[in-house]
Computed example of a mutant assay.
Amino acid sequence: MESRRAPAGKATNVVSRVYGPIGHIELDRPAKLNALTLQMLTELTRVLAAWAEDSSISLVLLTGRGERAFCAGGDIADFHRAITTGRHQEFIDLLAMEFDLDYLISSYPKPLISLAHGITMGGGVGLASHAPVRLATSSATMGMPEAKIGYTPDVGGTHLLANAPGHFGEYLAMSAASFTGADAVYLGFADVVVTDSFAENILDELDELVGLSAAEIISAVEVLHGAPESHALELSQGWVDHAFSADSPQEVLERLEQMVHPAARQAAQLLLANSPSSVSSAFYTVRQARAEQDLRSALERELRMARHLMHQPDLAEGIRAQVIDKDRNPRWSPALMSEVDHHGLRLLAEGPQA
């Protein structure tokens, strides 16, 4: 498909072009797995806001360049520099902009198609899984891995997790386990699993979708280009719901450790390896998101939790262990879930009205 007019906008690591009635935005930082920077978030917001008002554009496509990733999330090294050099407000300002962008995507006035492929984690899920039309390749690797680095699921991820079947939301948030694109429809993170050939040539396939509503596009893509979904996770529903329906993070861990199911034992090990504060935060924020069922409220709750956790030692330590030194040996503080301030985290999740 040839561009029929000059690029609508171009900034470092974000490329936007217009093809007649179709606007295409590409994340263009493949060497860094398209990890998001402040400049990228600023440009994404600018372009999407402009195209929302442009009557000549009726369909928008959001993709990531390179075979390895749609978007691996925020630039973790940037976060580490901010919180270790006293620039905490810069970290919060960036998150607030990112969350506003996610909300803009969720409420976009035109069909906006996201295509998740390769690594789609954290902030990448925020871009991909709030869109009006959410496509994923079966081989995509998706998830909210924040508990591994002493942080908490954000970008509206708690809202998505809260609406996953049963208590898979608590499981995925607390364990930081990933899932495939083939699982994404079952979990509520995508609308259609698409074939690799469609994903590779998606621009050439969009002309026939111009003028359709988001719901009509989803139906058409599923019929014409859909790939098999996975229902393998349904086999885990029993033990997941038994353990993660508990009334507290401590009880979740106790139930997992008492179960004989090998997957439950593995889940217990994942929880024990993650930051106890993050595991607990994930539990309370997902529970509260399920109770409220409002994306904007979830984003505000996540920002409150971020303000708290960025001043705790685990975030800097987790990024050090996983990303900077890569020794995979974080020293969490507090080290045990029994030592976490559960009352304080629960109040943060419940919000000012509490």
Rank of each mutant, 00 (worst) to 15 (best):
A140R: 02
H167S: 06
L115E: 05
M142T: 01
A140W: 01
G123M: 05
T158A: 15
G124W: 13
G123L: 12
P132Y: 03
H117F: 05
T120I: 02
M144P: 00
H130Y: 06
L161D: 03
T137W: 04
S129W: 00
T152M: 14
V133D: 02
G124I: 05
G156W: 04
E146A: 15
S107L: 03
H167G: 00
V125P: 01
I119P: 01
G143C: 10
G118D: 05
G157H: 04
L104E: 07
S139Q: 06
S129A: 10
G123T: 08
T152E: 10
H159E: 00
S138G: 15
P109V: 11
P109E: 07
G166S: 07
K148N: 05
L161R: 03
A116L: 08
G118L: 05
G150M: 11
H130K: 09
P145A: 10
G123D: 11
A131N: 08
G157T: 03
S107P: 00
G150S: 12
S106C: 04
D154Q: 05
A162T: 02
G118M: 08
G157L: 01
E146S: 14
L112Y: 06
D102L: 00
V125W: 00
S114I: 01
H130C: 12
K110L: 09
A164L: 13
T158K: 02
D154Y: 12
I105D: 11
P109H: 07
S107C: 14
Y103W: 07
S138A: 15
I119D: 03
T120V: 13
K110F: 08
E146T: 11
Y151D: 14
G150Y: 12
M121A: 05
P132R: 05
M142G: 03
G156Q: 07
N163S: 14
